[in-house]
Simulated assay, not measured.
Amino acid sequence: MSTTELIEKKTIGEVEHIVHASGEWDGTGPVEFSDDGVVWLQAWAPTADAAHPEFARVEVYRKGVRIPTTVTIRWSEQYPAASEEWSGKWDRSPMRHFGRTVRMVAFRQTFRDLLGDIRIEEEIDERDLPAAVADAAVAGAAVAAPTTRDWAAEFLAAETIEQIDALETEARAVRAFTPDRAGTDLHRTARNQRKALVESAWAISTAEPAPAFAATESPVAERPAPRDYLPPQNRADRRKAARKKKGARR
C-alpha cells in the first residue's frame, strides 16, 4: 500500500464546512502577509525583489477558549515545489494559495478533535515523498539537491519539449525544485523555456513556404504581338511578291 493512501485530503471549503457545522467555531481573523515578519499587510503585491510573501499568519477562535490560536507559516516550508500543477498555481496567485494554507494549518491546530490530520490538496506532507526521502525527513536529515549540476543552464540549452520533459523528471527525482527562491526561479526557467520552444515550433509550422520556382527560374518573357514576328522589310518583300504573283495569274 502506498503511503499517500494514508493521507486524507479535502478542499478548504470542505474543511470549513466541518468546522462551522461543529458549533465550536467562533470566528477567523483576517489573513496577513509579510516580507520580513515585522510589517504585516492584508493586501500584498509582488515587487521586483519579492515574487511572493515570505510569511502568512491568521487567528482562529474556538468557543470556550479564551486565547485564539495564532498561526504563522513560512512560504519556503509550504510551497509545493514537487507538484508542477500546484507550484504553478502558487506562482500565479500567491495570496490565494498561501492564505488558505495558513487558514488550514490554523483550523487543524484549533480543531484537532474534528479534523485529525486532514490536509488540503496542495499541502506538503512527508508521506507524499518517496520512501527514502520521507525516512530522511523523519530522522531529521537534510535532503538537499545536488549543487554540482547547473539545472538552469541545462533547461536553457534544451532544444525540444522532450528534452525539457526528461530534465524535469530528473530534477524532480533529486528534488532540485526546492521550496525556496532558488527552486522557484528554477521552475520558472524550465517553464519559460518550454513556452519558448512551443511558440517557436508553432511559428515554424504556420509559416507560408516560398514558391518553389523563385530561386531557380527566371521570369517568363512577355510574348510579342503577332505583327511583330517579322521585321518591316520582310513584310514589304512579301507584299511585293504577292503583287507579282497576282499579275502573273492575270
Rank of each mutant, 00 (worst) to 15 (best):
K10Y: 08
Q78V: 14
K9E: 14
Q233M: 07
Y79S: 10
E84C: 03
A207G: 01
A137P: 02
D117P: 02
A207T: 08
R188M: 13
M95H: 01
A106I: 03
F55R: 05
P80N: 03
V143I: 13
A21W: 08
Q78D: 12
E5H: 10
R103A: 08
R223F: 10
G23K: 07
E84H: 06
R227S: 09
N234G: 09
R188N: 14
P53D: 06
V58M: 03
Q109D: 10
A215L: 09
R149Y: 13
P219K: 02
R175V: 05
S93E: 14
A214Q: 10
A45I: 10
W202D: 08
T184I: 10
D237Q: 14
R149H: 13
P209M: 02
E16G: 10
R239T: 11
S83T: 07
I7D: 02
S2R: 13
P53W: 04
E59I: 01
T28D: 07
R119H: 07
A137V: 11
R239G: 04
A212Y: 05
E24Y: 05
E217P: 02
T110D: 11
T160R: 00
I124D: 07
R66L: 12
T147E: 09
G27S: 04
G27K: 06
Q233W: 11
W40R: 05
Q233D: 15
K10R: 11
D128C: 07
T184A: 14
L230W: 13
I118Q: 13
K246I: 09
K195V: 07
F177H: 03
V38A: 11
T160Y: 00
S76F: 04
R172W: 02
R235L: 12
M1N: 09
E154Y: 01
P232E: 04
I124V: 09
I67H: 13
T216D: 09
I118M: 15
Q163E: 15
G99R: 03
T47E: 04
